[in-house]
């Protein structure tokens, strides 16, 4: 943000041609990076596979990539996993959505009303310092074994990330831009919509990347500690019978889902923040 606003006068009318070459170069770099990323993955999996086939890594504790792939295939084709995956995703989505809405709302309110921030500051800190996993059993008691307890756990994780980032983002608003809007006679509501929110958007998005992971953690951990459905439940069941392949397969599936959602958020971010000069 600061960069964009205070930057030295740029060359009059940056030519499109110049930008095009720069982005082409970046694209070429991206291709290489993706290739290296894939190569790294293949290599790690190959080493893991080799070591476990050679019995250097005990497959009982470490499983085998081939077994994990087979298990995933089985889950997906028999349809066993769909119900669990859907449950986890719904919980994570609800936690993410509710946590984000509350987080943005409180972030805006606290950043705009100094008294609120001053009074509640210590409480927010105390709550944030609380290890959230410890809340899981309490939520189980309060909300039961169903979906609600997992959503609640996820919300406590998501909320703080979004809250702190929104608060910070609003606080960072450029004073000149704010004063300009005020001189044009924006009402408080219009300031919020046209100045504070867009300005905080970069911060809010960076919090979304983190909080997606947290939403899923909330769901899976909640399920792990007590439920009858969901990926966390599957992992717990596998663990109960010392089935490491099942545990790994569950974890892998979870990561894959997070990755997909994160890519979606990134696209949205790129669109909504398209007004920023690309470095």
């Amino acid at each position: 943000m600061r960069d964009t606003l205070d930057k030295a006068p740029e060359p009059l009318g940056a030519e499109d041609g110049k930008l095009a070459t720069a982005s082409k170069r970046r694209k070429a770099g991206r291709g290489v990076i993706v290739a290296l990323q894939v190569a790294t993955f293949v290599m790690l999996v190959a080493i893991w596979q080799a070591l476990s086939v050679q019995q250097i890594l005990d497959p009982f504790f470490f499983s085998r990539p081939s077994d994990i792939a087979l298990r995933l295939w089985e889950w997906l084709t028999t349809g066993f996993i769909w119900e669990h995956l859907a449950t986890t995703l719904i919980e994570a989505f609800l936690a993410f959505a509710i946590g984000t809405v509350i987080g943005v709302g409180f972030g805006l309110a606290f950043a705009r009303v100094d008294l609120l921030a001053a009074v509640f500051d210590p409480y927010i800190r105390i709550l944030n310092a609380l290890p959230r996993v410890i809340l899981a059993p309490i939520f189980l008691l309060w909300f039961g074994l169903g979906i609600a307890s997992k959503v609640a756990l996820g919300v406590t994780l998501v909320f703080f990330v979004v809250f702190f980032n929104t608060y910070q983002g609003v606080r960072e608003v450029d004073l000149v831009i704010l004063n300009n809007a005020r001189m044009l006679q924006a009402t408080d509501h219009q300031l919020l919509r046209h100045v504070y929110l867009p300005s905080a958007m970069a911060w809010i998005f960076s919090s979304l990347h983190t909080s997606i992971g947290f939403a899923l953690v909330g769901a899976v951990v909640g399920e792990y500690l007590g439920s009858a459905r969901g990926i966390g439940y599957v992992v717990a069941q596998s663990e109960g019978v010392f089935d490491t392949t099942g545990v790994f397969a569950g974890l892998l599936l979870t990561s894959a889902v997070v990755l997909c959602v994160d890519l979606g958020i990134e696209r949205l971010e790129r669109y909504l923040l398209r007004w920023r000069p690309r470095a």
Partner: peptide, 12 residues
């Protein structure tokens, strides 16, 4: 007010 610094909304 025409400000000394850039004051346009960069996101609009």
């Amino acid at each position: 007010y025409l400000f000394q610094q850039d004051a346009l909304l960069p996101w609009r």
